[in-house]
Write a protein that binds this DNA or RNA. Sequence first.
DNA 1: AAATATACATCAATTTCTTATGTATAAAAT
DNA 2: ATTTTATACATAAGAAATTGATGTATATTT
Lengths: 112, 112
Amino acid sequence: MGNSKLYKGSLTTIIMKLLAEHDKMYGYEITQKVKHLTKGELNITEGALYPALHKLEAEGLLDVEVKKVDNRLRKYYKLTESGMKETVNLLTELQQYIQTMQHLVNPKLSLD
Amino acid sequence: MGNSKLYKGSLTTIIMKLLAEHDKMYGYEITQKVKHLTKGELNITEGALYPALHKLEAEGLLDVEVKKVDNRLRKYYKLTESGMKETVNLLTELQQYIQTMQHLVNPKLSLD
DNA sequence: AAATATACATCAATTTCTTATGTATAAAAT
DNA sequence: ATTTTATACATAAGAAATTGATGTATATTT
């Protein structure tokens, strides 16, 4: 994905958040959306994305709906009820992660 | 380490930054420092820490000096020249990561 | 006609981390 | 006096996430 190892572990959070905003998206669309939103900083590879989507579906966090558009196959994913709840958790964890890392990396701004 | 998968990939950054601040530290000291700085949020396990330190040493980013204190062994690690440069890169990458994730997660605050 | 873009997928290998286990000394608690 | 906790290192099997390569197929652009 990114040029930095830090992106390891954040793919699920990214997918879920995009789906929380856009209701339903297909895989390729997600890769393009992320590329544009990050101005090329982050390029999700297919080898990471598709297995991640399949796993989220298997866990019941995503529902899938197959459509044929322009004679090409698309798999539209959307959050389930439980997926919406999990998205809230993931976003909370992201904020917590960022705060913790800021503390560690910028201790001058905290009280230690 | 943390309760969230997001911490995957950040151990090296944490170690290097602590060594940039404290000149020399030993493994156990690092685990305790992180625990205190994060108020228990982040607990680095030995199974993650020691292999990470060995790898950084093998890469020439850390130097090691063994000392016996109170009849117990300690391995003090410190940044090499190249380790200091790499630390700057890692911290830049962390800031970039945080910015990118904020963009993705809080698109309202950005220009898309 | 060839190359690029769209759209899915899988798979071997790599990296990172977890969890368990092991050794050894010192200090604290029962 | 003995057990537990803390200090201090280490490795190793397995899990999980990702990389990078490869494959199929259609549509569009050069």
